[in-house]
Amino acid sequence: MDILYFAWVRERIGLPKERIETSATTVAELVEELRTREARYAEAFSDLKALRVALDQELSEFDAPLAGVREVAFFPPMTGG
């Protein structure tokens, strides 16, 4: 599964993209798994209210299932316009 990070999430974690093997079945489980990796992940994922998630390039929710998903992206609320 490809995990992408944008904006300050990318800066805190220190990379824009990585490929991981996971048995997580929901986004929330994936977040828990990432949090336990290293302090920089724990810090980036410390407040989920400050984050948004997209599954295969569609905005989604943290309780969404990951079955069949190939690309997960984490980022702060968007500030376009």
Binding site: A7, L59, A73, M78, T79, G80
Partner: peptide, 20 residues
């Protein structure tokens, strides 16, 4: 577009940088 399109703005000023 302001809150549903995936863009993020970062401002660089004399005081440093910050994500909007």
């Amino acid at each position: 577009l302001k809150s549903r399109a995936p863009f993020w703005k970062k401002e660089e000023t004399g005081d440093g940088t910050r994500w909007v």
